[in-house]
């Protein structure tokens, strides 16, 4: 049942992905024009050189042909003898093309940076969940108490503070300030120390601040969500039934209420999965974290359009995968959901 459902969802996602490729390529085509900026400014290049480079890259072709080239459709047609001439592989063959800046495969850039982003954001999500759920539970169980008000204020602060500002503040306190006071301090950026660093402890130390900043944003939202979801669950008849059975309030809350309350939260977190790539960009930049978000910014600034397109598409795939994962988890947690 489950795999069938997953398969169907993937098939349904294919047209969406196709749409993403059209929009991505279309937007880049419109904004970037000939895709090779600055060639005209190079005094060493004659017009015929520029023309040759463009022809090499296939940029002398009409938009539709360029787009189909990127997809790798001609390559497929070539295999069955329907497309004359030499052609390159494309997206359909898993080839994201090559970077316009350094000529190396876009995929290799993505794969190089992906582990760092996954490390940071999955840790942040984990911390967010681990902290947000108890926060929400406490808020719901002691509604209106000073503890609840404190947690509510904390959430408001978390939502309101821009994460780059919080990042800078934390760097100021825990890196700069602590260093100046001669106290143990945390690294202000990077994923590992270049000098005699790179062991587990060093890498963890580098993770602390960016994880804190990212997790703070998440838990502000999720704890509120958990709280209202818990309050709703607590008022349900089955909670009264559970109490009537004579179990401890702990068991009422954790076995009978929380299980129902986290179901909507799963969707919320599933929707957050794409930020595994994109959402952390600002934090990655402030902390010089060598992840995908920073890669995207660097390459956008550097007019490396092929890499930007590759990243966009990669993010789209993650969005779809995140939704799928959330749906599957949802169905696992809630027996009322059918795989249809």
């Amino acid at each position: 049942m489950l795999w069938k459902y997953a398969l169907r969802r993937i098939i349904v996602a294919l047209p969406v992905l196709l749409g993403v490729t059209v929009i991505t390529y279309g937007l880049i085509y419109l904004t970037a024009g000939d895709l090779v900026p600055g060639l005209q400014l190079n005094p060493n290049l004659r017009p015929e050189d520029i023309a040759r480079i463009k022809a090499n890259l296939g940029l002398d072709q009409p938009f539709l042909v360029q787009y189909l080239n990127w997809l790798g459709v001609p390559w497929l047609l070539h295999q069955v003898g329907l497309w004359p001439g030499a052609v390159r592989t494309g997206l359909l063959q898993g080839d994201f093309g090559r970077s316009l800046l350094d000529g190396s495969p876009v995929m290799s850039h993505i794969l190089e940076r992906l582990p760092y982003t996954l490390e940071l954001t999955s840790l942040a999500i984990l911390v967010g969940v681990i902290v947000a759920i108890p926060m929400g539970v406490v808020g719901a169980l002691r509604r209106g108490s000073p503890a609840d008000h404190f947690l509510t204020s904390l959430s408001v602060v978390g939502v309101s503070i821009p994460n780059f500002w919080l990042a800078l503040l934390l760097v100021l306190i825990f890196s700069v300030g602590a260093f100046q006071l001669g106290l143990p301090h945390l690294p202000s950026g990077g994923a590992a120390s270049s000098v005699n660093g790179g062991d587990v402890l060093d890498r963890l130390a580098h993770l602390v601040l960016p994880t804190t900043v990212l997790a703070f944003g998440y838990l502000a939202v999720w704890s509120r969500y958990t709280r209202s979801s818990m309050l709703e669950s607590l008022s349900q008849d089955y909670v009264r039934t559970a109490r009537a059975k004579g179990m401890s309030e702990r068991r009422v809350v954790y076995v009978h209420t929380l299980r129902n309350a986290v179901i909507p939260l799963v969707t919320l977190i599933g929707l957050e999965l794409p930020t595994l790539v994109a959402g952390g960009a600002v934090v990655e930049i402030v902390f010089s974290w060598p992840g995908l978000g920073r890669l995207a910014l660097e390459r956008a600034v550097g007019h490396d359009y092929t890499t930007v397109m590759g990243l966009t598409l990669f993010t789209a795939v993650l969005v779809i995968a995140g939704n799928l994962l959330a749906d599957v988890l949802y169905a696992v947690l809630d027996p009322r959901i059918r795989y249809t």
């Binding site: 008849d237 089955y238 039934t241 009537a244 004579g246 309030e249 009978h256 299980r259 027996p335 009322r336």
Partner: peptide
């Protein structure tokens, strides 16, 4: 106390409710 009541509830005094649709926990 609540602890003492928990001993009695569901063991000596049982209760069934109006709406069996919502009185059973949907996820178990």
């Amino acid at each position: 106390s609540q602890e003492q009541l928990q001993e009695v509830r569901g063991k000596d005094l049982a209760m069934i409710f109006q709406d069996p649709m919502t009185s059973l926990n949907p996820v178990y």
